[in-house]
Write a protein that binds this DNA or RNA. Structure first.
Lengths: 339, 339
DNA sequence: GGTCGCATGACAAACGTTTGCTGAGCCGTG
DNA sequence: CACGGCTCAGCAAACGTTTGTCATGCGACC
């Protein structure tokens, strides 16, 4: 293992450790003669020298590590995001410290953020944002480098990389309208999350834009099947003549399936349903779910890139840049022209 | 933030830094008088002292960090495992450094392992094991603390926490036999992975134990839908009278669905199919998939626990303990009594 | 009352880097 | 020939801890 130390290399090359350090660092190599540099490099190679990153970090105050906070690793959504972040970071020599928090309360998030900061991460990528989020406010106040991903928060100048919810809902509604639907409802996600809130607002906007009645809305209190089922049930009971439902995410859509089935509506035939996110396996559910697909991996890549630009870029160019990536629509069997 | 240093605390309490250090560390606190200890603790609290973990690690040679190597974060399998590992580690004050490797070759794994070791992780949890795995061999040779999870390797004394594949396949076969099936086939996973290999062996063993012909086997070269589809196709073509298929994992099972449908067999009616892993959404596919459920979260918890016991336990009690956790069977609509 | 021992806390070294400063040597120029 | 400047490399401090060793002072025992 990396047992050889810088001092060893220096001795082997017959120079002072500081000289070895400069020779090894490409940025400072020019200050050392080509001959000694070569000698040091050779020695380092021969001894299989690996710098002690902790010692370096202690000295330089940079750990080349970023922390990521995930609200729920088990949600398949985050796999691709993590993969994207990881890939982009690795590319710049950074590592990723991931922490999960089941059903995170603000205190939980606060706690894991503390452990990350204690570990001296250079920056933070947060996937846990709420529309009102004191933890993120605090981070920004303490001016730690932070970028949000997938969800955002309100009234705080902070970078974020998101899916374009407005465009996404537009895709779903336009698709349904083109199929000939007019009476379209919405099962919204939690209004405390930027995604739930934005998708709902966009639903209303697009419906009005199409000259349709946007009032058939019910909110699921969580992005899960059961809450989706309950919300869809009351939505359908209040609006029995609904031709289609735009669900705020795929799990909610599956809840809609059940509610529809219970009421004798055949999904994809006598009622159309769209999902959101297009998580894996949605092509295998019955009927296959038409869903708005978000480029999650790219979300991760861009979020990492944004953070890196803050970290390595010119100081205080920390404008709160936000990126919205365009979704696409995966059309499947759950949507069809109205009978 | 944690700007106060130990020296600051010491000064505030009117003692030497070393005394402050001992007072702050519960293990050494006894060596300091109760009065000074109290004074130091108060000062620390007042200054919001947070120890500099890097400095500590540099001195103590322990980072309280473990690294985890995942072959593919996007596979929903690993979510629960990661969550379990994280939970158990956090419980002991450890953090988790996760690295992903898309379709890992040995070199890729080697590379990410290097970055983890460079970051001085105290131990490693590997989910990437192959039956023949030079990387793991190397780690063991260099006596770094490592525990395998989900998959294992052969001929290397190393701890591992696995699902009990033999029991799992037994559950599937017994279920099918009890339903009345006799002509049962197997679509195996890659023989280079311990899971693929073990499940196949267990299939043969259980079939023979039940007095049935165990020769209808085809191997999918990867745990994915398409390879599963191809293998199932040729399996069904070679054995048109098969009544049931035991698939080596859920994705392969979905491939079997397609192959069966193409041949006019209705899954859950004229042919029964079982999956393995019971990843999310298998209850929503059509027909809902009967699948062997593995306690993945517990796999993670136990793996972390095993590693921790190696790390904090008595030195050189590093017997290569292996744990096999018992699966259960989620019976759904894809299996039924033969026509 | 003297010596021993123990409890307490200070001192300093060490972990492995990076980096500002200093100084030696050399070459060229006036 | 002297001096200025430039290139190169060494010295030492610093990052914030932990911990072995040592000095001090006190009480207790004989």
């Amino acid at each position: 293992m990396g047992r050889a130390t810088l001092k060893d290399v220096a001795e082997a090359a017959g120079v002072h450790p500081s000289t070895a350090s400069r020779a090894l660092n490409p940025a400072t190599r020019s200050v050392v003669s080509a001959k000694t540099a070569a000698r040091v490099l050779a020695a380092a190679q021969r001894l299989e020298y690996q710098p002690h990153l902790l010692a370096r970090s202690l000295r330089t105050n940079r750990t080349m590590t970023v922390g990521m906070v995930i609200p729920d690793v088990e949600n398949p959504l985050f796999g691709p995001i993590i993969a994207g972040v990881e890939e982009r970071l690795a590319n710049d020599g950074f590592s990723l410290l991931i922490t999960n928090t089941q059903q995170p309360s603000d205190e939980d998030v606060e706690a894991v953020v503390r452990t990350l900061i204690d570990r001296r991460v250079d920056g933070l990528i947060m996937a846990t944002a709420h529309r009102q989020d004191p933890v993120i406010q605090e981070l920004v106040d303490e001016s730690v480098a932070v970028v949000l991903v997938n969800r955002t928060t309100e009234g705080i100048p902070v970078g974020a990389v998101l899916g374009d919810d407005h465009a996404g809902i537009g895709l779903a509604i336009n698709h349904l309208v083109e199929l000939g639907h007019r009476r379209i409802g919405h099962v919204a996600g939690p209004a405390t999350l930027s995604t739930g809130f934005a998708r709902r607002q966009s639903f209303v906007a697009w419906m009005q834009g199409a000259g349709l009645d946007p009032t058939a809305i019910e909110e699921a209190d969580w992005y899960q099947v059961d809450p989706g089922y309950r919300a869809a049930s009351s939505l359908l009971d209040r609006n029995p003549d609904l031709q289609a439902i735009v669900a705020a995410n795929d799990l909610i859509a599956l809840g809609c399936y059940r509610a529809a089935a219970e009421r004798g509506r055949r999904v994809g035939e006598s009622i159309s349903i769209t999902g959101y996110n297009d998580v894996p396996f949605m092509e295998f559910v019955q009927p296959a779910l038409t869903s708005v697909r978000i480029p999650y991996r790219r979300l991760g890549v861009e979020a990492a890139g944004l953070l890196l630009s803050v970290l390595t870029g010119p100081t205080e160019d920390r404008r709160a840049v936000s990126l919205r990536l365009p979704p696409t629509l995966a059309v499947r069997a759950s949507t069809s022209a109205p009978g």
